[in-house]
């Protein structure tokens, strides 16, 4: 059963405060958060969060297409390295 719309998206209050503070300061920083359950809101776009995965903070650059999803989705708790082979990385 999905969450009732009237409640609005869930975000831990400290995440909102930290994001607001970072946006006001305009500093280039990674906002370290432990709240994997918080929803990504439109005001987070452009910020970089370090989302804890139980081991370390994974940097997540928030973009528009992430809105509505949870932070935890971008910070896996298990990592499979695999082979580099011909895989490519794009500098955005």
């Amino acid at each position: 059963m999905s969450r009732s719309v009237w409640k609005g998206p869930f975000v831990d209050s400290y995440v909102l405060k930290k994001a607001e503070k970072s946006r006001e300061s305009g500093r280039n920083e990674v906002i370290k958060i432990w709240s994997r359950r918080s929803t990504i809101l439109p005001q987070f776009v452009g910020l970089t969060f370090g989302v804890y995965n139980g081991h370390k903070h994974i940097p997540v650059n928030v973009t528009e297409d992430m809105i509505g999803q949870k932070f935890g989705e971008y910070s896996p708790t298990r990592t499979y390295y695999g082979h580099a082979a011909d895989k490519k990385a794009k500098r955005k």
Binding site: P59, P76, T79, Y81
Partner: peptide
């Protein structure tokens, strides 16, 4: 050491 991508950007 490695290059990873967890859905957001390359790391």
């Amino acid at each position: 050491q490695s290059v990873q991508n967890h859905g957001a950007s390359d790391l």
